[in-house]
Write a protein that binds this DNA or RNA. Structure first.
Length: 275
DNA sequence: AAGCAGATCAACCGCATGCAT
DNA sequence: CATGCATGCGGTTGATCTGCT
């Protein structure tokens, strides 16, 4: 595996993060171009936060962006420095499983993990639980509502209190303890992000998402000055390919010095590309 | 210490999209 | 315009790790 990784890195150094299919056609590795690209994107790309858990802030961003974009993991990942679409996808999947388990367990009471796992079905009204899923992670102040749109499932975000009201859960001491407020507040501090055509939010999203203008670039989520100017990326969106290009720039100095490297707080890497 | 369940990670697969011919 | 290829993306699965009983 280490030899294959080195061969992959060498290919990227000389050709850039493209022409993946030539890796097999040239006999460099007995792997498909897709497989090579995946390995590069998920493991070998510079500045990845591999083995590092999602911070509360990252979780918060994922929740908000998932509510707006749906399961557009690659797009969401562009807002999270050092995270891949696979990371985000796995994070969300884990979260969903955990929440599904929580919903099967009683929401009332502060039972231990083991008792939760073996608890009987939720005491919630079935009509509520069928269409409602509750998010509960390190951002304990937040839940999301599952609705549908023309493109499939769509999530809308809401403060915990609204979820509890909708689910008929008394906001008493016990439930508050179960959904303890440990994360940074409020989630509404994360701004609404631009939606392209056809990415209409669900009616549920309309219920809970504040109406904010969708004309702001995403940089205000995490401070990242100068990317669009330096890297010739249009305002409003940092594409995945742009991420790959930036990662490639990280490798370039090995074979050719990049002109006047510039620190990019968003990615935590240097970008010497000419605009 | 062993067994188990849940969490996490890595990779594969199928489909969609864009581009060249 | 149709076709084939390369690439990107999302869903899914299996392996491994971790913590609890």
């Amino acid at each position: 595996m280490a030899e294959e990784d080195e061969a992959l890195l060498e290919h990227v150094r000389t050709h850039g993060p493209c022409d993946w299919s030539s890796i097999r056609s040239k006999g460099i590795l007995p792997r498909t171009g897709k497989s090579c690209r995946l390995r590069w994107v998920n493991k070998l790309r510079p500045n990845l936060k591999s083995g590092c858990k999602f911070s509360a802030e990252e979780e918060r961003v994922v929740i908000e962006l998932q509510a707006q974009f749906g399961n557009k993991w690659a797009r969401i990942a562009t807002y999270l420095p050092g995270r891949t679409d696979n990371d985000v996808k796995n994070f969300w999947s884990t979260r969903q499983k955990r929440l599904a388990r929580l919903l099967r367990a009683p929401l009332r009471g502060r039972s231990s993990r083991s008792s939760n796992a073996k608890a009987p079905a939720s005491s919630l009204d079935p009509s509520v639980t069928e269409n409602l899923q509750c998010h509960q992670g390190s951002c304990h102040d937040h839940v999301s509502f599952l609705g549908t749109s023309s493109s499939g499932h769509c999530w809308a975000s809401a403060p915990l209190m609204e979820y509890q009201v909708a689910a008929g859960i008394p906001h008493d001491q016990e439930s508050s303890a179960f959904f303890s407020f440990e994360g940074p507040l409020p989630l509404q501090a994360v701004p609404q992000l631009p939606l392209s055509d056809g990415e209409a939010s669900s009616s549920n999203a309309a219920l809970f998402a504040p109406e904010l203008p969708f004309d702001q670039p995403p940089y205000h989520l995490l401070d990242f000055p100068g990317l669009s100017e330096r890297c010739n990326i249009g305002p409003g969106f940092v594409g995945a390919s742009a991420m790959d290009d930036l990662a490639y720039q990280e490798l370039l100095p090995i074979v050719q010095p990049a002109p006047t490297p510039m620190m990019l707080p968003f990615f935590g890497m240097e970008c010497g590309r000419d605009a």
